[in-house]
Design a protein around this nucleic acid. Structure first.
Lengths: 146, 146
DNA sequence: TTACGTGCAAACGTTTTGCACAAAC
DNA sequence: GTTTGTGCAAAACGTTTGCACGTAA
């Protein structure tokens, strides 16, 4: 299936109309290993001669995130970034340049269960745990050279 | 050691002067199982009759975070929160009300190693991995009642 | 044809800055 | 005495809103 058809179907299955703004946004994030900030998206789209208004971008980012199509996370300096929310994956963040890489895990998270801190009376046992996200921090190859 | 002495020492070991603002901030976060937003800190301190200016709060939060005394993380709706950066610990976040609990792990993260995604040519092997932070998401007991 | 999406400009909340004065060392 | 921290007000920044018009279904 080619890209625009894939986007249409993705939107349809989530009961979202297929619009120019949504296609442009998903066009950026789908099949790209990048994690754009809203600002970067605006710049990139402007570059491509397909400008989008700020309001429209933010409105759509929110809808797409609410529907679970996109995932929002905060990278270096708490800058918000978005990526396509495919199956569960994890991140490694460079503490130097802020670069983010998606990673899989060698080993499983299944055996990891939250446990109350030693000196706390917490109600942790009553929580319903839904997801686990592991974030690695480290230094990327480029930043090691300096 | 009593609290104010503990704070003085903490600051001294990080080459930071002992000032009113820093003592108030650390006074809030030390030994408290809460994760304040900047706004909540301002309100709480005002409440205690020890008001702090916005500028001073933010300047100090930045310095304390840079020195590694505090840790910053983004909770529900990407609201920034701070906690004392003691030994490694993990978080569980309620997807409903945004409540955050510190947790330990039953089981170890040691065997978890980042692995490239299947369809990617990444330079992951060259990264230096420093830390791992696991975030659970779920629903807290209070929000299950509704 | 109706509900929803878009762009503009203005509003909003949070964080940062410039500067004069005060406190820490 | 020098360096660093503080408070104020103003500015900057990212995000959201109100509204008139355009588009998808």
């Amino acid at each position: 299936m080619h890209k625009s058809a894939e986007i249409k179907q993705l939107l349809a299955t989530h009961n979202l109309r297929s619009t120019r703004a949504r296609s442009l946004i998903l066009g950026l994030l789908l099949h790209e290993n990048r994690h754009y900030t809203p600002d970067e998206m605006l710049a990139e789209l402007k570059n491509q001669g397909k400008p989008l208004s700020t309001a429209t971008l933010y409105q759509n980012l929110r809808q797409l995130t609410d529907k679970g199509i996109l995932a929002k996370f905060s990278g270096k300096n708490s800058v918000l970034r978005y990526d396509i929310n495919t199956e569960e994956h994890n991140h490694i963040v460079c503490t130097d340049c802020g670069r983010v890489l998606d990673v899989n895990l060698e080993g499983s998270l299944d055996h990891l269960i939250p446990k109350p801190l030693p000196d706390t009376k917490s109600d942790l046992a009553q929580w319903l745990v839904a997801t686990k996200h592991l974030e690695f921090k480290g230094v990327c190859p480029d930043c090691q050279k300096v």
